[in-house]
Protein backbone atom coordinates (compact mmCIF):
# COMPACT_ATOMS: atom_id res chain seq x y z
CA UNK A 1 0.00 0.00 0.00
CA UNK A 2 2.72 2.39 1.05
CA UNK A 3 4.77 1.77 -2.09
CA UNK A 4 1.77 2.40 -4.32
CA UNK A 5 1.10 5.74 -2.63
CA UNK A 6 4.73 6.69 -3.13
CA UNK A 7 4.45 6.02 -6.85
CA UNK A 8 1.26 8.09 -7.04
CA UNK A 9 3.01 11.00 -5.40
CA UNK A 10 5.98 10.63 -7.72
CA UNK A 11 3.73 10.86 -10.78
CA UNK A 12 1.90 13.87 -9.40
CA UNK A 13 5.10 15.67 -8.45
CA UNK A 14 6.48 15.02 -11.92
CA UNK A 15 3.28 16.46 -13.41
CA UNK A 16 3.41 19.48 -11.14
CA UNK A 17 7.04 20.12 -12.10
CA UNK A 18 6.18 19.84 -15.79
CA UNK A 19 3.65 22.61 -15.27
CA UNK A 20 5.80 24.69 -12.96
CA UNK A 21 9.32 24.62 -14.39
CA UNK A 22 8.79 26.62 -17.61
CA UNK A 23 7.16 29.46 -15.72
CA UNK A 24 9.76 29.37 -12.96
CA UNK A 25 12.46 29.59 -15.61
CA UNK A 26 10.73 32.59 -17.11
CA UNK A 27 10.43 34.32 -13.77
CA UNK A 28 13.98 33.57 -12.61
CA UNK A 29 15.42 34.64 -15.94
CA UNK A 30 13.59 37.95 -15.60
CA UNK A 31 15.55 38.65 -12.42
CA UNK A 32 18.90 38.50 -14.27
CA UNK A 33 20.47 41.07 -16.54
CA UNK A 34 20.39 40.71 -20.31
CA UNK A 35 24.08 40.00 -20.66
CA UNK A 36 24.23 37.06 -18.28
CA UNK A 37 21.19 35.47 -19.91
CA UNK A 38 22.81 35.94 -23.31
CA UNK A 39 25.94 34.18 -22.08
CA UNK A 40 24.49 31.47 -19.85
CA UNK A 41 20.98 30.85 -21.19
CA UNK A 42 17.74 30.75 -19.20
CA UNK A 43 18.20 30.76 -15.46
CA UNK A 44 16.72 28.68 -12.68
CA UNK A 45 18.12 30.78 -9.83
CA UNK A 46 17.47 34.23 -8.41
CA UNK A 47 19.48 36.87 -10.25
CA UNK A 48 19.04 39.90 -8.05
CA UNK A 49 17.93 42.28 -10.83
CA UNK A 50 14.23 41.94 -10.14
CA UNK A 51 13.54 45.61 -9.45
CA UNK A 52 15.69 46.83 -12.36
CA UNK A 53 14.02 44.63 -14.91
CA UNK A 54 10.45 45.19 -13.81
CA UNK A 55 10.91 48.92 -13.32
CA UNK A 56 12.24 49.14 -16.87
CA UNK A 57 9.47 47.13 -18.53
CA UNK A 58 6.72 48.80 -16.54
CA UNK A 59 7.73 52.41 -16.90
CA UNK A 60 10.00 52.82 -19.89
CA UNK A 61 8.66 53.10 -23.40
CA UNK A 62 11.83 51.73 -24.85
CA UNK A 63 13.24 48.40 -25.83
CA UNK A 64 10.48 46.20 -27.13
CA UNK A 65 7.79 48.65 -27.87
CA UNK A 66 8.59 52.11 -28.93
CA UNK A 67 5.68 54.11 -27.66
CA UNK A 68 4.11 52.15 -24.86
CA UNK A 69 5.15 51.11 -21.36
CA UNK A 70 4.39 47.84 -19.66
CA UNK A 71 2.10 49.74 -17.36
CA UNK A 72 -0.02 50.96 -20.27
CA UNK A 73 -0.26 47.44 -21.62
CA UNK A 74 -1.23 46.18 -18.17
CA UNK A 75 -3.91 48.85 -18.05
CA UNK A 76 -5.20 47.86 -21.49
CA UNK A 77 -5.28 44.21 -20.48
CA UNK A 78 -7.27 45.12 -17.37
CA UNK A 79 -9.76 47.08 -19.47
CA UNK A 80 -10.17 44.15 -21.83
CA UNK A 81 -10.47 41.60 -19.01
CA UNK A 82 -12.91 43.57 -16.88
CA UNK A 83 -14.78 45.14 -19.78
CA UNK A 84 -15.33 41.83 -21.45
CA UNK A 85 -16.31 39.98 -18.27
CA UNK A 86 -18.69 42.66 -17.01
CA UNK A 87 -20.20 43.36 -20.42
CA UNK A 88 -20.73 39.71 -21.08
CA UNK A 89 -22.30 39.02 -17.70
CA UNK A 90 -24.70 41.95 -17.88
CA UNK A 91 -25.81 41.30 -21.43
CA UNK A 92 -26.11 37.56 -21.09
CA UNK A 93 -27.95 37.70 -17.76
CA UNK A 94 -30.58 39.99 -19.23
CA UNK A 95 -30.98 37.80 -22.30
CA UNK A 96 -31.15 34.59 -20.29
CA UNK A 97 -33.72 36.15 -17.96
CA UNK A 98 -35.94 37.00 -20.91
CA UNK A 99 -35.57 33.52 -22.39
CA UNK A 100 -36.29 31.59 -19.21
CA UNK A 101 -38.82 33.74 -17.38
CA UNK A 102 -40.97 35.26 -20.10
CA UNK A 103 -43.57 34.02 -22.47
CA UNK A 104 -43.43 36.12 -25.63
CA UNK A 105 -43.73 35.95 -29.38
CA UNK A 106 -40.58 34.80 -31.19
CA UNK A 107 -39.00 33.82 -27.88
CA UNK A 108 -37.98 30.45 -29.24
CA UNK A 109 -36.78 31.98 -32.50
CA UNK A 110 -34.54 34.47 -30.69
CA UNK A 111 -33.23 31.70 -28.55
CA UNK A 112 -32.13 29.80 -31.64
CA UNK A 113 -30.58 32.89 -33.20
CA UNK A 114 -28.43 33.34 -30.12
CA UNK A 115 -27.79 29.62 -30.01
CA UNK A 116 -26.22 29.61 -33.48
CA UNK A 117 -23.36 31.76 -32.22
CA UNK A 118 -22.09 28.76 -30.34
CA UNK A 119 -21.58 27.00 -33.64
CA UNK A 120 -18.96 29.29 -35.14
CA UNK A 121 -15.99 30.63 -33.22
CA UNK A 122 -14.59 34.03 -34.06
CA UNK A 123 -11.63 32.46 -35.83
CA UNK A 124 -13.67 31.17 -38.77
CA UNK A 125 -15.33 34.52 -39.49
CA UNK A 126 -12.34 36.63 -38.66
CA UNK A 127 -11.90 38.40 -41.95
CA UNK A 128 -15.42 39.80 -42.41
CA UNK A 129 -15.60 40.60 -38.69
CA UNK A 130 -12.47 42.64 -39.10
CA UNK A 131 -13.88 44.45 -42.14
CA UNK A 132 -17.13 45.25 -40.39
CA UNK A 133 -15.40 46.64 -37.32
CA UNK A 134 -13.14 48.64 -39.58
CA UNK A 135 -16.14 49.92 -41.51
CA UNK A 136 -17.81 50.99 -38.27
CA UNK A 137 -14.71 52.98 -37.37
CA UNK A 138 -14.07 50.91 -34.28
CA UNK A 139 -10.42 50.12 -34.98
CA UNK A 140 -8.07 51.02 -32.15
CA UNK A 141 -10.81 51.52 -29.60
CA UNK A 142 -11.80 49.64 -26.49
CA UNK A 143 -15.32 49.12 -27.79
CA UNK A 144 -14.01 47.58 -31.00
CA UNK A 145 -11.83 45.36 -28.88
CA UNK A 146 -14.50 44.24 -26.47
CA UNK A 147 -17.98 44.27 -28.03
CA UNK A 148 -17.44 41.89 -30.96
CA UNK A 149 -15.99 39.35 -28.54
CA UNK A 150 -19.26 39.42 -26.59
CA UNK A 151 -21.16 38.13 -29.63
CA UNK A 152 -20.68 34.52 -28.65
CA UNK A 153 -23.51 33.34 -26.44
CA UNK A 154 -21.59 31.19 -23.96
CA UNK A 155 -22.57 33.42 -21.03
CA UNK A 156 -26.22 33.40 -22.03
CA UNK A 157 -26.16 29.64 -21.98
CA UNK A 158 -24.48 29.40 -18.59
CA UNK A 159 -27.10 31.69 -17.10
CA UNK A 160 -29.93 29.96 -18.89
CA UNK A 161 -28.83 26.64 -17.40
CA UNK A 162 -28.57 28.22 -13.99
CA UNK A 163 -31.93 29.98 -14.12
CA UNK A 164 -33.57 26.76 -15.19
CA UNK A 165 -32.19 25.09 -12.07
CA UNK A 166 -33.72 27.74 -9.80
CA UNK A 167 -36.87 26.18 -8.27
CA UNK A 168 -40.08 27.21 -10.08
CA UNK A 169 -41.79 27.88 -6.77
CA UNK A 170 -39.53 30.86 -6.12
CA UNK A 171 -41.00 32.92 -8.92
CA UNK A 172 -44.46 31.72 -7.95
CA UNK A 173 -43.96 32.78 -4.35
CA UNK A 174 -42.59 36.10 -5.57
CA UNK A 175 -45.62 36.68 -7.75
CA UNK A 176 -47.94 36.01 -4.83
CA UNK A 177 -45.77 38.41 -2.83
CA UNK A 178 -46.49 41.02 -5.46
CA UNK A 179 -43.08 41.14 -7.17
CA UNK A 180 -43.21 42.04 -10.85
CA UNK A 181 -40.55 40.97 -13.34
CA UNK A 182 -38.12 43.80 -12.58
CA UNK A 183 -38.45 43.42 -8.83
CA UNK A 184 -38.06 39.65 -9.02
CA UNK A 185 -34.89 40.03 -11.08
CA UNK A 186 -33.27 42.58 -8.81
CA UNK A 187 -34.53 41.39 -5.42
CA UNK A 188 -34.31 37.66 -5.90
CA UNK A 189 -32.65 36.36 -9.04
CA UNK A 190 -29.49 38.49 -9.03
CA UNK A 191 -28.71 37.88 -5.34
CA UNK A 192 -29.35 34.17 -5.90
CA UNK A 193 -26.92 34.12 -8.83
CA UNK A 194 -24.02 35.62 -6.89
CA UNK A 195 -21.84 32.53 -6.89
CA UNK A 196 -22.66 31.83 -10.51
CA UNK A 197 -21.80 35.40 -11.45
CA UNK A 198 -18.50 35.15 -9.61
CA UNK A 199 -17.60 31.89 -11.32
CA UNK A 200 -18.50 33.20 -14.75
CA UNK A 201 -16.67 36.43 -14.04
CA UNK A 202 -13.46 34.53 -13.39
CA UNK A 203 -13.80 32.41 -16.52
CA UNK A 204 -14.67 35.42 -18.66
CA UNK A 205 -11.96 37.63 -17.20
CA UNK A 206 -9.33 35.03 -18.03
CA UNK A 207 -10.84 34.57 -21.47
CA UNK A 208 -10.86 38.30 -22.17
CA UNK A 209 -7.41 38.92 -20.78
CA UNK A 210 -5.99 36.09 -22.87
CA UNK A 211 -7.45 37.23 -26.20
CA UNK A 212 -4.81 37.36 -28.88
CA UNK A 213 -6.01 37.08 -32.47
CA UNK A 214 -8.74 39.71 -32.23
CA UNK A 215 -6.59 42.37 -30.51
CA UNK A 216 -3.84 41.61 -33.02
CA UNK A 217 -6.17 42.66 -35.83
CA UNK A 218 -8.09 45.47 -34.17
CA UNK A 219 -5.28 47.31 -32.41
CA UNK A 220 -2.53 48.61 -34.65
CA UNK A 221 -1.92 51.64 -32.47
CA UNK A 222 0.52 50.55 -29.79
CA UNK A 223 -1.18 52.59 -27.09
CA UNK A 224 -4.03 50.09 -27.28
CA UNK A 225 -1.81 47.01 -27.00
CA UNK A 226 -2.58 44.51 -24.30
CA UNK A 227 0.17 42.44 -22.74
CA UNK A 228 -0.92 39.30 -24.53
CA UNK A 229 -1.25 41.17 -27.82
CA UNK A 230 2.27 42.50 -27.25
CA UNK A 231 3.84 39.04 -27.09
CA UNK A 232 4.62 38.92 -30.79
CA UNK A 233 6.11 42.40 -30.82
CA UNK A 234 8.28 41.39 -27.92
CA UNK A 235 9.37 38.32 -29.80
CA UNK A 236 10.04 40.24 -33.00
CA UNK A 237 12.27 42.77 -31.27
CA UNK A 238 13.94 40.06 -29.25
CA UNK A 239 14.77 38.03 -32.35
CA UNK A 240 16.26 41.05 -34.08
CA UNK A 241 18.38 42.29 -31.22
CA UNK A 242 22.17 42.13 -30.93
CA UNK A 243 22.14 41.16 -27.31
CA UNK A 244 18.45 40.30 -26.78
CA UNK A 245 16.95 41.54 -23.52
CA UNK A 246 15.56 38.15 -22.66
CA UNK A 247 15.10 39.18 -19.04
CA UNK A 248 12.72 41.95 -20.06
CA UNK A 249 10.85 39.72 -22.49
CA UNK A 250 10.35 37.21 -19.71
CA UNK A 251 9.29 39.93 -17.30
CA UNK A 252 6.53 40.98 -19.71
CA UNK A 253 5.49 37.36 -20.11
CA UNK A 254 5.30 37.03 -16.33
CA UNK A 255 3.19 40.20 -16.15
CA UNK A 256 0.91 38.83 -18.84
CA UNK A 257 0.21 35.66 -16.89
CA UNK A 258 0.21 36.97 -13.35
CA UNK A 259 -3.30 38.51 -12.95
CA UNK A 260 -5.30 35.65 -14.49
CA UNK A 261 -3.21 33.04 -12.69
CA UNK A 262 -3.65 34.79 -9.35
CA UNK A 263 -7.39 35.06 -9.83
CA UNK A 264 -7.75 31.44 -10.87
CA UNK A 265 -5.66 30.20 -7.95
CA UNK A 266 -7.37 32.36 -5.33
CA UNK A 267 -10.90 31.65 -6.48
CA UNK A 268 -10.10 28.11 -7.46
CA UNK A 269 -13.16 26.40 -6.07
CA UNK A 270 -15.60 28.87 -7.66
CA UNK A 271 -13.73 28.73 -10.90
CA UNK A 272 -13.66 24.93 -11.06
CA UNK A 273 -17.31 24.72 -10.11
CA UNK A 274 -18.25 27.29 -12.72
CA UNK A 275 -16.23 25.59 -15.42
CA UNK A 276 -17.53 22.11 -14.75
CA UNK A 277 -21.14 23.07 -14.06
CA UNK A 278 -21.46 25.38 -17.00
CA UNK A 279 -20.40 22.75 -19.48
CA UNK A 280 -23.20 20.43 -18.45
Amino acid sequence: MKKVQLLDHAVLILGALFMLVPVTLAFMTSTHDAMSVYKDGLQMTWGGHFTDTYKTVLTEASGFTKSVTGLTMLYNSMILGFGFAIGKIVISMLAAYAIVYFRFRFGVFFFWVIFTTLLLPLEVRILPSYEIVQGLGMMNSYSGLIIPLIASATGTFYFRQFFKSVPDELVEAARIDGAGPVKFFIDILVPLSKTMIAAIFIIMFVYGWNQYLWPTLITTDETFFTLVRGMKQILAVWVGAQIPETNQAMALAVLAMLPPVVIVVIFQSWFVKGLVESEK
Binding site: V90, I91, S92, L94, A95, Y97, A98, I99, V100, Y101, F102, R103, F104, G107, F110, V113, I114, T116, T117, L120, R125, S129, I132, V133, L136, I147, P148, I150, A151, S152, A153, T156, K164, D168, V171, E172, R175, G180, P181, V182, F184
Partner: peptide, 27 residues
Protein backbone atom coordinates in the same frame (compact mmCIF):
# COMPACT_ATOMS: atom_id res chain seq x y z
CA UNK B 1 -39.08 26.90 -19.46
CA UNK B 2 -40.75 27.76 -16.18
CA UNK B 3 -44.21 26.61 -15.15
CA UNK B 4 -45.12 30.18 -14.48
CA UNK B 5 -43.76 32.89 -16.75
CA UNK B 6 -44.15 36.61 -16.85
CA UNK B 7 -45.76 38.18 -19.83
CA UNK B 8 -45.06 41.75 -20.76
CA UNK B 9 -45.40 43.44 -24.14
CA UNK B 10 -42.00 45.19 -24.16
CA UNK B 11 -39.75 43.97 -21.39
CA UNK B 12 -38.55 40.63 -22.83
CA UNK B 13 -37.61 42.27 -26.13
CA UNK B 14 -35.82 45.06 -24.32
CA UNK B 15 -33.88 42.52 -22.26
CA UNK B 16 -32.85 40.61 -25.36
CA UNK B 17 -32.04 43.67 -27.45
CA UNK B 18 -28.38 44.19 -26.45
CA UNK B 19 -27.51 40.56 -27.02
CA UNK B 20 -29.42 40.34 -30.28
CA UNK B 21 -27.91 43.55 -31.60
CA UNK B 22 -24.39 42.34 -30.92
CA UNK B 23 -25.14 38.94 -32.39
CA UNK B 24 -26.62 40.49 -35.51
CA UNK B 25 -23.83 42.98 -36.17
CA UNK B 26 -20.80 41.04 -35.04
CA UNK B 27 -21.88 37.49 -35.68
Amino acid sequence: MKRVQYSNPILPYALLLPQLAIVAVFF
